[in-house]
Write a protein that binds this DNA or RNA. Structure first.
Length: 594
RNA sequence: GCCAGCGUAGCUCAGCGGUAGAGCAACUGAUUCGUAAUCAGUGGGUCGGAGGUUCGAAUCCUCUCGCUGGCUCCA
């Protein structure tokens, strides 16, 4: 995931070389950070310190770890250095000179960088006693760095190499105005409020358990209600789009993963286990099973395309440090499908998948998409002409849908080109969900064929695709996107009925039963509490519609409707309420518009 | 997996070498009430786990498990 908060400064338009750009400000802030660290902790070596999407960081090599108190002290020192308004000047040195200079300062990492990257002339920036090897540009002086904050410290490998030394990375952010900084800090705060791990506990949606194991999701009844709706919706959309449904096992003989090549190439496989002397393996993917169904009989060109979908639960050994709530787990359910088709059907099939993806994602209220087309990498399998044909089909399909997309040249996986679609959530953050991938590898390894018009065997194209990605992950994204305020059709409890006094309980129960018969998820809160208390409880549970029933409502066959986050909507006839709520649910309306 | 930080009641947290605490939640009783917290009482913890130091450990040390922020990884 990328934290795609939009820069709000307006002073940058991606122009990294304008002196007024946020990028320059942040890069200079990174230098200021390194300057402060060297002031306070002499002997520290500096790595690299670039501006990044939402701020900047600088990497340091030092024996002792930085503590939160150190961070505070560093920030204080930065403010002092900024207040001193030290001029930042560019100096150009001979490469040899530069190496000697940094060698003398004990900055071995910098020497390494200069040796590798520096030309005959090496550009450096100096502010007081701090000198850095850097292309620039920078602000004219440190005084312009006013609105910044250090955010966190973490480990980072030198040059991203796991076997190399580990550095300490200090993250911070900087803006041109206090308002922009405040907005960003507010955004971080808002993201914390929306954190699906927090809301998962508060709303009783799901949990993890130490005994059960890390990365293994337990869906609670309320999360289960949401999943059930997701699955129904998913199945209905796929049925309407001509898919058929498969169910396949969670384990298979290791041999199938040998044939598929996973044993050799896929790192996230769990270790196999033995039974009756045969090795079995938990499935990390569904593809081989679908392929085996394909191969269960001869296929004719008339049979194609075949669109086979499965909500298939797979298990992948993700390294312990990468697990993250529902967004990165070890057992998850892909909304998977495999399409077997002829070359002449390719473009049409891909277009259909894109349409389906757009339709489904829009249903959840996602309206902004970033689309990426990844093309053939250097190392690849399959025939060049198939790659070209498939890549062309992907492009044409995107163009047919009028989607603007970015080409990631050479970034495709080795087995085929692909389209990835990222959605933007309510906070503007990007999440990858949909992926559409051609697979020349498995088609070959499993020797897939169909009989053509000519009576000869032909290799079908195999498309592997997921729309939501995985149910767990998509659930997590939805929780954050809606901030737990699910649209009516997804809300675990849709209606909370609150009798004012005991004598209204019977009426409340009658309503509840009637609602259930209509397929609504409703509950009665007959606790002997004041109505204000029960309203508070329902509001905190984020129940979309709250129905208060007392003497008046019993007499009128009505309810008093209160809509979550909106407030009191007044008295409404039960039949009218039912009609409206059923309509909102049927339309999968994002808002509750009573 | 790596670096760092954190694990005390269901939740949020205090206590940091001398008999385990608060608020909320839960439970019991009273209250029968009209749009975001009625009052009173009660129960609840091998202080993540294991070992060690100490007369004495939630508190100090070691190991381990889990979580968090990153890195790396996600053919």
């Amino acid at each position: 995931m990328s934290q795609g908060k939009k820069e709000s400064s307006g002073k940058t338009k991606g122009d990294g070389h304008s002196i007024n750009s946020l990028e320059v400000l942040r890069h200079s802030a990174a230098h200021l950070l390194a300057h402060a660290v060297l002031d306070l902790f002499p002997g520290t070596q500096v790595g690299i310190g670039p501006a990044v999407e939402n701020g900047f960081y600088y990497d340091f090599l030092r024996d002792k770890p930085f503590t939160p108190e150190d961070l505070q002290a560093i920030e204080k020192r930065m403010r002092e250095l900024a207040a001193a308004d030290i001029p930042i000047e560019k100096i150009v040195l001979d490469k040899k000179e530069a190496i000697e200079l940094f060698q003398k300062m004990g900055q071995k990492l910098k020497v390494e960088l200069i040796e590798e990257k520096g030309g005959d002339q090496v550009s450096c920036y100096r502010q007081d006693n701090f000198i850095d090897f850097c292309l620039g540009p920078h602000l004219p002086s440190t005084g312009a760095i006013k609105y910044f904050k250090l955010l966190s410290v973490s480990g980072a490998y030198w040059r991203g190499d796991e076997s190399g030394p580990q550095l300490q990375r200090i993250y911070g952010t900087a803006f041109f105005t206090q308002e922009d900084l405040d907005n960003y800090l507010h955004f971080l705060e808002e993201a914390r409020h929306r954190d699906h791990r927090r809301l998962g506990v508060d709303l009783d949606l799901f949990s993890f358990n130490e005994l059960v194991g890390p990365g293994l999701v337990l869906w609670h009844p309320k999360g289960g209600a949401i999943r059930r709706e997701l699955e129904h919706y998913w199945q209905e959309e796929h049925f309407q789009d001509g898919y058929e449904f498969l169910y396949t096992p969670h384990i298979a003989k290791l041999d199938v993963w040998r044939t598929s090549g996973h044993v050799e190439f896929y790192e996230a496989m769990y270790p196999p286990f033995q039974s009756e002397g045969i090795e079995y393996e938990l499935k990390p993917m569904n593809c081989p099973f679908h392929i085996m169904v394909y191969k269960s009989r001869l296929r004719s060109y008339r049979d194609l395309p075949l669109r086979w979908a499965e909500l298939g639960t797979v298990y992948r050994y993700e390294r312990s440090g990468v697990l993250h709530g529902l967004l990165r787990v070890r057992g998850f359910t892909q909304d998977d499908a495999h399409i077997f088709c002829r070359g002449d059907q390719l473009e049409e099939e891909i277009t259909r998948v894109i349409s389906l993806a757009m339709r489904m994602l829009q249903t959840f209220g996602f309206s902004e998409f970033d689309v990426f087309l990844s093309t053939r990498p250097e190392k690849y399998v399959g025939r060049l002409e198939d790659w070209e044909k498939a890549t062309e089909a992907l492009k044409k399909a995107l163009e047919a849908k009028g989607l603007s997309y970015q080409i990631d040249e050479g970034e495709g996986v080795f087995y085929g080109p692909k389209i990835d679609i990222k959605i933007k959530d309510a906070l503007g953050r990007s999440w990858q969900c949909t992926t559409i991938q051609l697979d020349f590898n498995l088609a070959e390894r499993f020797d897939l064929n169909y009989t053509g018009e000519d009576g000869q065997p032909h290799r079908p194209f195999l498309i592997h695709r997921a729309i939501l990605g995985s149910l767990e992950r998509f659930f997590g994204i939805l929780i954050e996107h809606y901030k737990g305020n699910f649209p009516l059709w997804l809300a675990p409890v849709q209606v909370s009925i609150l009798p004012i006094a005991d004598r209204h309980n019977e009426y409340a129960e009658q309503l509840d039963q009637r609602f259930r018969r209509e397929g609504l998820r409703s509950v009665v809160n007959a606790r002997r509490e004041k109505i204000g208390h029960k309203i508070r409880e329902a509001e905190m549970e984020k129940v979309p519609t709250i129905l208060i029933v007392g003497d008046k409502e019993v007499a009128n066959e009505s309810v008093s409707l209160r809509v979550h986050t909106v407030g009191d909507k007044g008295e409404i006839k039960v039949s009218k309420f039912l009609e409206k709520i059923k309509n909102l649910i049927k339309n999968k309306s994002i808002t509750y518009d009573f």
